[in-house]
Simulated assay, not measured.
Amino acid sequence: MTAGKLMVVAIVLCGLIAGVSMYYLQVYHFYKEVPATGPEDVLLTTLAGDLTALPHSDFRAIDADSSPIRYRACFTTDVTPAQAAATFEPYEGAEPRVAPGWFDCFDAESIGTTITAGKASVFVGHRNIEYGIDRVVAITEDGHGYVWHEINDCGDKAYDGTPLGDDCPDRASFEKDQ
Rank of each mutant, 00 (worst) to 15 (best):
G4E: 06
V8D: 04
A10D: 04
I11Q: 07
V12A: 15
Y23T: 11
Q26T: 12
V34E: 13
L43M: 15
L43D: 01
T45D: 05
D50E: 15
L51I: 03
H56S: 09
S57D: 14
A61Y: 01
I62C: 07
D65V: 07
D65Y: 04
S66H: 11
R70E: 13
Y71Q: 06
R72G: 04
A73Y: 03
C74Q: 00
T77K: 05
D78C: 03
T80V: 10
P81M: 08
A84T: 05
P90K: 03
G93S: 10
G93W: 11
E95P: 04
P96F: 03
R97I: 14
R97C: 03
A99R: 00
A99H: 02
W102G: 06
F103Y: 09
A108F: 04
E109W: 01
S110L: 12
I111D: 01
G112C: 08
T114K: 02
T116Q: 14
T116N: 13
T116I: 08
K119F: 05
H126F: 07
Y131S: 03
Y131P: 05
V136D: 00
H144S: 14
V147H: 01
W148H: 06
I151L: 06
C154I: 08
G155I: 02
D156R: 11
D156T: 07
A158L: 11
D160S: 14
G161V: 06
T162L: 06
T162E: 13
L164I: 09
G165I: 01
D170Y: 07
R171A: 07
A172H: 06
F174P: 03
K176C: 01
D177R: 12
